[in-house]
Structures are given as structure tokens and as C-alpha cells.
Design a protein around this nucleic acid. Structure first.
Length: 787
DNA sequence: GTGGAGGCTGTTTTT
DNA sequence: CAGCCTCCAC
């Protein structure tokens, strides 16, 4: 392929600067719709085509599978287009179908196949399949490369069994759900049980630390990892084994990270280790090496999962040159929005200005004003749905160029989809619920997967217990208890007891025959796990267990659907084998099933209205967006109402929703809402509604949007806040680390860090009881507290 | 050991 | 309104 810079002409100057950056660190602050995926994909292409980087040396990390898939596709298309020009002197579309296929397969084999593009979890599970056997935890636990990946419900039931059976705790005070949550959080911040205990010296803290210890032992006994360990283990392994780290450090010379504001401590540690090879302090050996992160603090919506956007704020000090914005060479801001009309953008900008935790950033519109934003107050959730559907139908009529696929309905919680679905069905409008009840979370699918996990990893007692009596084969609770007790006493996995004919028969008594039969059946699958394909094993499992027949025999509508789902799973296995011919092993399939839980996505690209949560909408865009359910207690959610920082996160979520819209934006709320089977309860309009600029918004009734500003007044106010950078307290010299300050919403705290320099700064402030916050003194007024 | 009835609880977002 | 758990009758 010839060297070319033509494709770089499609970029604006900032994008181009980001894309052409070669070695060293770079932070790209990328507002909504500013072309960050474009920057990422073009950068990958540029590294390979112009800087002659071997695709094997590139690692691109995303946050969701969807994003990874999209990035892969876009890189592939970019290469194919370049290759078409180079080879045939014509654009890709001008080639015959045959030539296009040829080209694509060449591009795939030469470039795409060798790139590592995936989520943190997928990346780490790949690393662990190579190296996990070199790892031993502080507590002495080890894993083998056939490890299972426990999903959230597996993890929770393990916690539960520890809380209830092992430690005899009151499961009201130590609710397994919240204990699991505490452990997960600890892990994501990089704490092991001892460190967690150190930081939480209360009865509760010590007890949770104890559960944490048992829980880790339990995972190890099952030869299993939870989602958090998938990332934590590589970090620990890298710290204890410099050879392993060195291998991966040399392998990944150019690292790209999408949605950097969503990384948590452990993920950051991983990136840092990979980049610096474990070197502490300032890192400066950037020869043939780069770390390129892209993010937007205003779109940080995953702090409930321990994401920490102060990591993004700290990049310049961590890796970069730490110079002020105007002088730095390690920061690029993408501030031009190509997606939305200026009306939509203004409304979004106006809303997000209500947050105090921000960095100064302007998002400039490049498109015209467009339509005004519609806000509708409905009587109840059904009327709201009818309004949405009515609008879709009239758009259909007035704008034939629009189709159903151009419309998205966004909501805060999955449960809200029901009313919408009912009305959409009533009017025969095709729709698709994105990521609702996940395919791999269905009971029948989990059953089959549990069989497969047991085949791959006999130590997985959680899976074993799940399937030993599904379908019913007369092995009851008492029997399992007996077998389990024996396993515990001998310190071996449950499977060892069950698969030993003599022990099984003795211990299981009346059910002995059934247990032995079950064990022999599983054994027969295990015997061919290395020679047979994944799909063959699935076939065997289904045939030998008569799973489908059992469903058929019951024959309810649900059972029929379950049967179809299993059929679907089988298809998924076949498809997986086709797409991953290099490694189509059972293990690879299982990892894929655990980590890539959004199965339906790829095929249903038809012309349908999309329904999804706001979280699921991040990174997407639609010509027409409906944002529904703007009510206090729903959005912002009940749990955030008394927590300033949580409200800010909800506001960012709202900002994400608004900025998904390209041309038309509809907002709605209901006066009465029925949720969780209760009676219809009155609902107040969301505070966010009051924070939108009324003159941009058309309402169906004179709603209580407070204070009417004219557009000019608004703009004056906006630029006033922006120009306030000369105010006292906005310059780096105004502050010193360690000094006590007071914030209007968070109260008193201590400055722990100053980001940036000159008058473009952010302060990290620790507020007792609230934790660390990043504050921009230009946005919120800080006062010095005299001590 | 099975299966159903009935009671209780918890409901935000996801890899 | 689920989904889960417990309890009870077979």
C-alpha cells in the first residue's frame, strides 16, 4: 500500500493534530458529536499507513462492545477505501461487488485481524488466557486457563452463601447485594481485602472484609473470576512478574483509550503499567510508543461503577507535559459539534452549565438553528407514550425522508419501556428494545451455558449445582447438601465427589443412580472437549439432557419461546465458529458469551424505532430523539435526590440524552406515573426541565418552567460565565495545596491537587464524607476558609 | 424429592 | 409487577 495523506484532508485542524500525533502522550478532550470516533479510527489508520506501525503493536480499548465493533468496522472501511484508491484508482463504491469482497478480505487479513480492539474486559480475558497460570494471589489462590467468568448473579449468590451459611450473618444488615457492591467497589479501586479493612475500621467494614476474603477463596475454588477480577488480576500479575509485564509492554506500543472519563482506578493502573512497564514517577521513554486517550468529563455517567473522571483530569500531570492549555503539546480539544442543530446544542450547553464539577469547555455548533425543542406534559405514562407515537406518525407524514430507524426513545430506567412498547404495538410501528432483558440472562440460556461451563471447567461448582437437577432428574437439596459437605471436608471441588462413582453412590443414597448417571453424561462431554467443536458439544448437551423435549412436554407459550431461544443460542455458536475460525474453542465461545452479552445487535439493523436507556445511548446519534419521563424521582432518580454529586451525574446523563439528537428533540413528562405495579402516583416535573432555556422550547401547556429569559439575555449570561476567568480565585497562583476552602454545595474541604496552570485550572478538593471532587473555580465560587 | 400456593421484597444505569 | 423464598401437601 502506498503512503498517502489524502484521507487526512477530511479532518478539521484539531482532529488532524490529534490524528497525526505520533509518539508520546496525548489527551483529547472531545465534546459530544465532535468526531472522536473519527479521530480514533483515523489515528489507527495513520499509525499503520504513514508511521509504519505494525498492527500487532496497536491496542485500542473501548468501554462497550458496541463501540469496539463500530471502531473495527470503521477502521476496516477506511482501509478498504484507501486500498481501493491505491489499487484501482477508484472509490470503493465504484468497484464491483466481487472486487469489494476481495479488498475487504485482504484488508481484514493484513490489518484488522492483528489489531487488538476491544473492551477492557475482553482485552484482559485474552491476556489471562495466556498468563493466568503464572499468577498467585497474596492469599495463595491460583487459577487455570479454563477459568469461568462469573456474571453478576453468580457473584451475588456466592456472596449470599457466604453471608448466610458460612458466616451466619443477618442478611438484612449484610444484604448480599450491597455487600457484593462494596466488594466490587473495593476491587475497582484496587483494594484487596486487607486494604479494604484498613480503610474501613468499623464492625461493618471488618465484616465485609471478611466476606471479601471468603469470596475470593470461593472464586478460586470454582476456578472462576468476576468481572472486576478480570482486570484486577492482570494488574497484580504485572506487578509481581516483570517478565510477563515486559512482554505485554513491548507488544502494545501504541495504546488508544476511548471514553477515558469512564476508567476506574484498576483500569488506570493497567494502562499505566502497560505504558510505563512499571516504572514509577515521570515516564519519558516515548520512543516508538504512545498513549492516546479520548474523553469528555461532561459525559461521565458511570461513577456508580467506580468510574473516576479525576483520572482524565489528571492525565496532563500523569503522562503529559503538565503545561497550561495554550502551551501544552499533549492536549487537543475537539470543540466543534457536527451532530446537532444549534438549538439542540444551546439547550444542552445551558443545562450542563448547572454543574459545578466541570472543566471549561465550549461546544460550538457548526449547523444551523433547526427546529425548536418540544416539551410535552402528559397525564400519565400511557398518554406520554401516545404522544410519542403520535409525533412519530406525524413525522412520517410530514417528512417522508425520515423513517422509523431515525427515531430513538430514551429513558432513565428499563422498566419504562413497557408502556411505550404497548402503544407502539397498538399502532403497528416496528421497534427494537436495545439491551433490555439480555439474551444471555435468560434462564434457559444460562442453563445451557452452565452445562458448557461445567464441561470446560469442572471446578465450577456454581454451574454444577445449577444444572445437576435441571431438567429434573431426582437429585434434591438434601443430596446436594450431603455431597457438598463431603467436598468441603475433603477440600476438593464438588465435581470430584460426584464423578467418583463409589463416593457418589454412598453419599447420595437413594439418588445415587441419578448422580452417577449425571456424572457419566458430563464426563462423556468432557472427554471430547479438545477434539470436538463448541457446536458439537452443544448438540450433545441438548440431546443427552433432553432439555428441549422437557420444554416441549410442558408446552406452555413461555416454554415454546425458551425452546426458540435455545435454538438461537445454537445459531450463535455456529456464527461464532464461522467468525472466529482461529480460536473457536468452547472456552473462547464462553468468554465471548459472558463479555458480549448484547447478542441481537448485529442482525436487527432494520428500519425500527430504537428504545433504550440513556446509558445505552451513549455514543449513538439519531435524527429524532424523544427523551421521556422527566420527573423528580425517576429522572433524576430517587437515590440521587439528596446527593449533590449524584444529581450532577444525573444531569450529565440528561446532557448525554439531549446531545444524541441531530435534528429534532422531544422531551416529555407525566403528571401521574404507575411504576412497579403500584397505583398511579403523582410526579413532579424534573428539576432539569426548569433548567432548560424556555425560549427554546415549545410546550403543550404553560408548564412551570421558571424564569423566562430571552435568547439575548441567555447568551449574555452564558458569555458572562465564560468570561469570568479573570475573577479572583480563578488563577492557579490563588490556591495552594492543603488549604481549606468552602464550596456552596459541598461545604468545607481541602485542596489536594491543582490541575492545569495559569487561569485554566481545576482544583481537586477533598470534602469530608463526600470524597474528592473536581471543581472549576470559574464555574463555582470557592471561598477561602481562614483557619 | 417434587411442585404449587402464597408471601415478601425490591426495583437505575452495565462490563 | 416480577422474582425469590418458604412452607406445605403429595
Amino acid at each position: 500500500m502506498t503512503v498517502t495523506t489524502d484521507f487526512l484532508n477530511q479532518l478539521n485542524p484539531s482532529q488532524r493534530r490529534a490524528v497525526e500525533h505520533f509518539c508520546g502522550p496525548l489527551l483529547v478532550v472531545a465534546g459530544a458529536g465532535s468526531g472522536k470516533t473519527r479521530a480514533l479510527t483515523y489515528r489507527i489508520a495513520n499509525l499503520i499507513l504513514n508511521n509504519r506501525v505494525d498492527p500487532e503493536n496497536i491496542l485500542a480499548v473501548t468501554f462497550t462492545n458496541k463501540a469496539a465493533r463500530e471502531m473495527k468496522e470503521r477502521v476496516e472501511r477506511l482501509f478498504a477505501e484507501q486500498e481501493a484508491l491505491a489499487r484501482h484508482g477508484k472509490p470503493l463504491q465504484a468497484l464491483s461487488e466481487y472486487e469489494q469482497i476481495q479488498l475487504r478480505s485482504y484488508v481484514y487479513k493484513t490489518f484488522i485481524k492483528h489489531l487488538w480492539i476491544g473492551t477492557f474486559h475482553a482485552l484482559c480475558s485474552r491476556i489471562l488466557r495466556f498468563d493466568i497460570e503464572k499468577y498467585q494471589s497474596e492469599a495463595g489462590h491460583r487459577w487455570t486457563k479454563t477459568f469461568s467468568i462469573f456474571d453478576e448473579s453468580d457473584a451475588q449468590s456466592l456472596v449470599k452463601s457466604i453471608v448466610v451459611s458460612k458466616m451466619n450473618l443477618d442478611d438484612r444488615a449484610f444484604n448480599p447485594r450491597s455487600v457484593r457492591f462494596a466488594i466490587s467497589n473495593a476491587k475497582n479501586q484496587g483494594y484487596d481485602a486487607a486494604e479494604y479493612e484498613q480503610a474501613n475500621q468499623t464492625f461493618k467494614g471488618r465484616t465485609i472484609a471478611e466476606v471479601y476474603r471468603y469470596y475470593q477463596a470461593g472464586l478460586a475454588e470454582n476456578n472462576a473470576l468476576d468481572f472486576d477480577d478480570l482486570i484486577r488480576l492482570p494488574v497484580q500479575l504485572f506487578r509481581q512478574n516483570s517478565q510477563v509485564l515486559n512482554y505485554w509492554h513491548r507488544r502494545f506500543r501504541h495504546i488508544l483509550v476511548d471514553e477515558y472519563q469512564d476508567t476506574n482506578r484498576t483500569q488506570y493502573d493497567l494502562l499505566r503499567l502497560l505504558t510505563t512497564n512499571g516504572q514509577a514517577g515521570r515516564f519519558d521513554d516515548w520512543e516508538n510508543r504512545s498513549v492516546f486517550v479520548v474523553g469528555d468529563a461532561d459525559q461521565s455517567i458511570y461513577s456508580f461503577r467506580a468510574a473516576d473522571f479525576t483520572i482524565l483530569m489528571g492525565f496532563q500531570n500523569d503522562f503529559g507535559d503538565g503545561l497550561p492549555d495554550d502551551d501544552t503539546r499533549t492536549l487537543v480539544k475537539l470543540e466543534e459539534n457536527y451532530r446537532s442543530t444549534s438549538n439542540i446544542l444551546d439547550v444542552a450547553n445551558y443545562l450542563i452549565e448547572n454543574n459545578t464539577e466541570r472543566i471549561d469547555k465550549i461546544l460550538r455548533a457548526t449547523r444551523g438553528e433547526g427546529e425548536t425543542i418540544a416539551c410535552y406534559r402528559a397525564d400519565d405514562e400511557v398518554a406520554e407514550a401516545e404522544y410519542v407515537v403520535g409525533q412519530i406518525r406525524s413525522l412520517e407524514f410530514d417528512h417522508p425522508e425520515l423513517s422509523w430507524g431515525d427515531c430513538a426513545i430514551l429513558y432513565r430506567a428499563n422498566a419504562q419501556s413497557r408502556a411505550l412498547e404497548e402503544v407502539l404495538t397498538r399502532y403497528s410501528i416496528p421497534y427494537r428494545v436495545v439491551g433490555g432483558l439480555r439474551f444471555y440472562d435468560r434462564r434457559e440460556i444460562k442453563d445451557v451455558l452452565a452445562y458448557l461451563r461445567l464441561v470446560a471447567n469442572p471446578a465450577d461448582s456454581v454451574s454444577l449445582k445449577r444444572v445437576i437437577n435441571t431438567p429434573r432428574r431426582g437429585i434434591g437439596k438434601t443430596t446436594i447438601d450431603n455431597l457438598e459437605k463431603a467436598a468441603q471436608e475433603l477440600g476438593v471441588p464438588l465435581w470430584e465427589i460426584i464423578s467418583d462413582e463409589t463416593s457418589a453412590k454412598t453419599l447420595a443414597g437413594r439418588s445415587g443412580k441419578a448422580v452417577v448417571g449425571f456424572a457419566k453424561m458430563v464426563q462423556s462431554w468432557q472427554d471430547k472437549v479438545d477434539s470436538a467443536t463448541a457446536s458439537e458439544i452443544v448438540q450433545d448437551v441438548l440431546a443427552d439432557t433432553s432439555y428441549l423435549e422437557t420444554l416441549q412436554a410442558r408446552g406452555t407459550e413461555d416454554d415454546l419461546e425458551r425452546g426458540q431461544n435455545i435454538q438461537e443460542l445454537y445459531n450463535a455458536v455456529l456464527q461464532f465458529e464461522e467468525e472466529n475460525s482461529e480460536d473457536a474453542s468452547l472456552l473462547a465461545f464462553l468468554a465471548n458469551a459472558s463479555l458480549n452479552s448484547d447478542l441481537e445487535d448485529s442482525k436487527n439493523e432494520g428500519n425500527e424505532v430504537s428504545l433504550m436507556t440513556l446509558h445505552a445511548s451513549k455514543g449513538l446519534e439519531f435524527p429524532v430523539v424523544f427523551l421521556v419521563g422527566l420527573e423528580q424521582g425517576l429522572f433524576p432518580s430517587n437515590r440521587s435526590l439528596d446527593d449533590a454529586a449524584a444529581i450532577e451525574e444525573e444531569r450529565r446523563l440528561c446532557y448525554v440524552g439531549l446531545t444524541r439528537a441531530q435534528d429534532r428533540l422531544f422531551i416529555s413528562h407525566a403528571r401521574l406515573r404507575r411504576l412497579y405495579g403500584s397505583d398511579r402516583t403523582p410526579a413532579m416535573p424534573s428539576i432539569f426541565l426548569g433548567e432548560l432555556p424556555p425560549d427554546y422550547i415549545q410546550t403543550n401547556i404553560a408548564t412551570a418552567l421558571p424564569e423566562r429569559w430571552t435568547k439575548t439575555q441567555r447568551q449574555a449570561k452564558l458569555s458572562q460565565t465564560r468570561q469570568s476567568s479573570d475573577r479572583p480565585g480563578t488563577h492557579a497562583d490563588d490556591w495552594t495545596v492543603g488549604e481549606p476552602v468552602s464550596h456552596p454545595a459541598f461545604g468545607e474541604g481541602k485542596v489536594t491537587h491543582i490541575f492545569g496552570a495559569g487561569n485554566k485550572i481545576c482544583l481537586a478538593i477533598h470534602f469530608p464524607g463526600l470524597g474528592k471532587k473536581i471543581i472549576d473555580p470559574k464555574v463555582s465560587t470557592l471561598e477561602r476558609v481562614s483557619s
